[in-house]
Amino acid sequence: MSTLFCCLPLGIVAIIHAAKVDGLYRSGDYSGAQEAADNAKKICSIWSHRWYHCRCYLFLYWNGWLNVIPW
């Protein structure tokens, strides 16, 4: 979902890392599979959280609850 709604290029990178997991696991490289899974999870979680906070901030700003953009 974060690939579609958040950041397409980073979502594709996360999908590539996730696709590597099965091949690495079947070849016996368990630590490599775990590392690829961790990388995919990290990329997805970081960007989905950033997108969520950005949407919340924009919602508050557009509804007049925030008067100034601090950046």
Results as ranks from 00 to 15, higher is better:
Leu66Ala: 12
Gly64Ser: 08
Gly32Arg: 05
Leu58Val: 14
Ile12Pro: 00
Cys54Asn: 07
Cys54Leu: 08
Phe59Ala: 14
Arg50Leu: 10
Ala19Phe: 06
Cys44Trp: 05
Gly11Cys: 06
Gly32Ser: 12
Arg50Asp: 03
Leu66Thr: 05
Ser27Val: 05
Val13Tyr: 02
Trp47Ala: 09
Lys20Tyr: 03
Cys6Glu: 05
Tyr25Cys: 09
Leu66Lys: 13
Ala37Glu: 03
Trp62Thr: 08
Arg26Ala: 13
Ile69His: 11
Trp62Arg: 13
Trp51Cys: 14
Ala18Leu: 09
Tyr30Asp: 01
Ile46Cys: 09
Trp62Ile: 07
Cys44Gln: 15
Phe59Gly: 03
Leu10Val: 11
Gly28His: 01
Ala33Asp: 02
His49Met: 14
Ala14Ile: 01
Ile15Pro: 00
Val13Arg: 13
Ile12Ser: 04
Gly64Phe: 12
Ile16Lys: 01
Ala14Asn: 04
Cys6Ile: 02
Ile69Tyr: 06
Val68Tyr: 07
Ala36Thr: 00
His17Tyr: 09
Arg26Gly: 01
Ser2Arg: 07
Pro70Lys: 15
His53Asn: 15
Cys56Val: 12
Pro9Ala: 15
Val21Tyr: 02
Ser2Cys: 02
Ile46Lys: 13
Pro70Asn: 14
Cys54Thr: 06
Asn63Gly: 14
Leu58Arg: 12
Ala14Lys: 08
Ala33His: 01
Asn67Met: 13
Asn63Trp: 09
Leu24Trp: 06
Thr3Leu: 09
Leu8Glu: 05
Tyr61Phe: 14
Gly23Trp: 03
Lys20Phe: 02
Val21Cys: 04
Lys20Asn: 02
Arg26Ser: 08
Asp29Lys: 10
Tyr25Gln: 13
Leu58Met: 15
Glu35Tyr: 06
Trp62Asn: 06
Cys6Trp: 04
Cys7Arg: 07
Ile16Arg: 03
Val13Trp: 04
